[in-house]
Amino acid sequence: MKRFTYDRPQLEGGAFSLLEQPEASVIAGGTELLNWMRLGIAEPDHLVDIARLPGWGEIALDGETLRIGALATLNKVGEHPLVDAHARALGEACLLAASAQLRNRATIGGNVLQRTRCVYFRAEAPLTWGCNKRQPGSGCAAIAGHSDDAAIFGWSESCAATHPSDPLVALACLDAEAELHSASGVRRLPVCDLHLSQVEAEAEGEDGATAENRLERGELIAAYLIPLRPASRSTYLKVRDRQSFAYSRVTAAASVELEDGVIGALRIALGSVAQRPWRLGRAEQALVGERLEEASLLAAIERDMEEARTLPGSDYKRRLARNAAIRAVMAAGA
């Protein structure tokens, strides 16, 4: 166990200055950072506990927007009546995540910054296999090894990890924005653009395995802003081997606006298929004006699945993702 300092600033400004220390790390619920420290994934010298920042855990309507503070726990979001009324897929995703005990600690801000559950990445140090996320340049043992949980979209030869968050997929489906605070001010970023697939990272000149999101150093997620869409209904589907306390094989969030059985607007996001939530853009466009029927969904979603690239272990995920997407859209429109 490495020694570290611990501070709990009471104000945002204090947090930003503490985060300027070298090797400083943010902690809120702590459910993920402690795993990293135990496994040797992170060895921070300074912990900055933001759990007491005033107002950062509130959930409220702000005009045509539902604002969810980053320090709201998953259980608080999942059980909140405003979330149920305006962002049902998000509430469902929160309550399908982790276990009750973890949901009472884990915050929705930190949840989207958890890292992949790839078993090669999650192993205890010293690693005896290559993992470009853990040790850049060491290779990716998962691609040559156990690839059942590998990404099928947007991965590169450097890394085939997926992002495991449930709420992230729902936020992406709901067109949420992340409100990012830093010492230099506030900016907004669509949640869909918050994370990078390995291919995107490399296209931007970053390291495909370690550049996982577009947060700047010293920048914190303060809140999510979800546009209200009274005519839409959303739902979240999580496919997993056991019925609780398990990461997904595949997830799908869908938001549907129906007029007389005809699709007026549609948003579909898949989870656990890439290092970022994966929107099915072709199907979303092609299905507007179509009737909500499994056959037409299948044909449209297949066009998005053409982009999938699978490994020997992950081939089943192509079908599973397609079927999950169909099932989620049908359920949202039911």
């Binding site: 078993v119 999650r122 192993a123 296999w129 043992a141 090894g145 156990h146 056991r242 609780s244």
Partner: peptide, 24 residues
């Protein structure tokens, strides 16, 4: 499961190795 290159167990924990929970 064993890693097919190093013969190290892939998950030495209860996160990567599932046993049933009450919900099952």
């Amino acid at each position: 499961e064993l890693d097919p290159t190093t013969a190290r167990w892939l998950s030495k924990d209860l996160a990567g190795v599932h046993i049933p929970v009450n919900a099952d």
